[in-house]
Amino acid sequence: MDVAINSTLEANQKLLTYIMDLGEILLKSGAEVNRVEDTVTRIGKAYGFCRVDVFSITSSIVVSAHDPQGDVFTETRRITRYITDLDKIERVNRLSRKICAKPLDETELLEAIDQIKNAEGYSETAMFFTYGLISAAFSIFFGGTFNDGITAFLCGLVLRVVLRLGRKMDLQNIVINFFTSAAVGIGAIVMIKMGLGQNMDKIIIGNIMLLIPGILLTTSLRDMINGDLVTGIMGLGDAILRSLAISFGFAVVMAWFGGGII
């Protein structure tokens, strides 16, 4: 009898761990906190927990789940790295829909989670050129000439390399932003001296779109209006610090080269 009870306890705890894995994937991939809370609650209920309390902010998820026998299971996750991956969010969404229609058994669930975790994104080469494309597009978008666009494209490539290096060295986001913007500034100055582009500010603004946390700023405001005040304020603080770091990176380069601070 005792063994049987212990095994259901263990099974339920394990189940909760799998559910939290899905929640963690969502949060890491940049899903909204209310989506994370909603998904964990739904899947938990689908697996027979009669009450699921989830609290999530940008950097952590806490959950307590009650099973019908009255046992309470709990788990906490701390998230430190985020990489926006809308494809993973969609996959988790699809899986959650499937589970709510008919719960998968343990091996199937484990397999599905592994599949999502190991889903391949775009290759590094594709990312590399995408960064160039985005900065070229926005440099022309904000009024740059065609030559500015080409310069911005090259600066975007530089940006991606520095960004990747910084992530590899596990530097803080703020520091990475500072170094990338400084590198882009130097790149832009060198290329203008070589006679490639003309408008410094348009080239830089094209690259800024890649760095500036504009989406973060908008989503944090949305979170606040939505009632997730803690998440919203965290996002806002992050956005402010990051944009300061970016401006500071450019300012240092401009001051160094004496080209007048922008």
């Binding site: 926005f138 978008f141 904000f142 830089i204 603004i205 800024i208 779109m209 500036i212 504009g214 989406i215 700023l217 908008t218 944009s243 300061l244 970016i246 401006s247 500071f248 450019f250 300012a251 601070i261 922008i262």
Partner: peptide, 17 residues
């Protein structure tokens, strides 16, 4: 993304600095 005020955010912080 096209609406994201990247340039405003940049100019604003550079004014501050």
């Amino acid at each position: 993304v096209p609406l994201i005020p990247g340039s405003d955010l940049y100019y604003t912080t550079s004014h501050l600095i």
